[in-house]
């Protein structure tokens, strides 16, 4: 009976803003959120527990899509609600967050998601790939290799690699259970028969640890090799489709291919016009309406780091300092 410490129920939900008491809603929770109207990282604790349980199962069964009760988030489905929920369930006040979209920190949706976490958690953010403890991404894996203590969170629109071959969840679930991936191989082989090579350039399917076929999210196949035996933990969240999956560190990730048609990544004939990189994924920039083109790194942090180190691309050499 003689308690010294306060007793609180773990399952208690922090109160968020009450529309009817004050019209705008702002009662502080006991969590230290930057925006007091909501719990730390927006989600209530019961929701976080549900997502956390799904994450542990996802890590224990690499490449398997764990169903989870995805919540309605204050941003549209298809705009990163899955990644946002995963990040919200793992993030803490000591984390340093980086958010990228198409490899860039400054694309509007990356800015919007970063602002959401600044507002609801107050965490420090960065554009430095190496400094981040959590990197949330849409469509790219950073060029700079990730480290053991980092977590890469992918936003996933369609988590099911078999979806465009078989639209029914009931069917694809059985196919995964039986590891019946014949349809996928037939599709890839038809590509080869028709075009002489596999005509899939992004969301290129991978086999995780020799068991499940997984969708790497719409990253270019250029990034697939980075997923293989990556030192960092990779987490995937699909909010609208209500699935979470994971690749633990140092896990085998093989891009599907055939012996006579081995997997290969995209190559460019040009290098980055700003930093001269030849080993990065390049975005094409249209410079005029007469067919003018230039290529620049899609990973803005990688490009800036190289330029800061004195690397100069063709355009940068010709023009003024960017």
């Amino acid at each position: 009976m003689n308690e010294t410490a306060p007793i609180r129920r773990t399952s208690a939900l922090p109160e968020s803003g009450d529309l009817h008491s004050d019209g705008v809603g702002a009662t502080a929770s006991d969590a230290t959120a930057a925006d007091g109207a909501y719990n730390f990282a927006f989600l209530d604790e019961q929701t976080k527990r549900m997502i956390r349980r799904a994450l542990l199962k996802a890590v224990a069964i690499p490449g398997y899509q764990v169903p989870f009760a995805s919540r309605e988030m204050p941003m549209p489905y298809g705009w990163g609600t899955g990644g946002v929920q995963v990040t919200a369930a793992i993030i803490g006040p000591e984390d340093i967050l980086k958010v990228i979209d198409q490899g860039a920190d400054d694309t509007t949706n990356a800015v919007s998601i970063r602002q959401f976490f600044v507002r609801t958690t107050g965490v420090e953010t960065t554009t430095e790939t190496g400094d981040a403890t959590i990197i949330q991404t849409r469509h790219r894996v950073p060029e700079q290799p990730l480290q053991e203590d980092q977590i890469l969170v992918y936003q996933v629109p369609i988590p099911e690699p078999l979806r465009f071959l078989e639209p029914r969840e009931t069917e694809t679930r059985t196919m995964h259970a039986l590891r019946d991936y014949g349809l996928m191989h037939v599709k890839l082989y038809e590509d080869i028969a028709k075009h002489g090579h596999i005509a899939t350039t992004y969301a290129y399917p991978v086999l995780v640890n020799g068991h499940y076929v997984m969708d790497p999210s719409p990253t270019p196949k250029f990034d697939n090799p980075k997923m293989h035996e990556m030192a960092a933990l990779q987490l995937f969240g699909a909010g609208r489709e209500k699935r979470i999956y994971a690749i633990p560190p140092h896990t085998k990730v093989k891009s599907l291919d055939f012996e006579d048609h081995p997997f290969e990544v995209q190559r460019w004939s040009s290098c980055c016009a700003l930093c001269g990189a030849t080993d990065s994924f390049l975005d094409e920039i249209v410079t005029d309406d007469r067919g003018g083109r230039m290529f620049v790194c899609s990973d803005t942090h990688y490009c800036e780091t190289r330029r800061a180190a004195g690397h100069v691309g063709l355009a940068a050499a010709q023009g003024a300092e960017p």
């Binding site: 489905y77 979209d101 198409q102 390049l282 094409e284």
Partner: peptide, 25 residues
């Protein structure tokens, strides 16, 4: 409709990287 509108409208988001991959192909 919240799911549908989100996914239909997400096509407004940048897809430079995917498009670049397709363009190259």
């Amino acid at each position: 409709n919240v799911q549908a509108t989100g996914f239909v409208e997400h096509l407004k988001l940048p897809h430079y990287v995917d498009f670049q991959s397709e363009l190259e192909l």
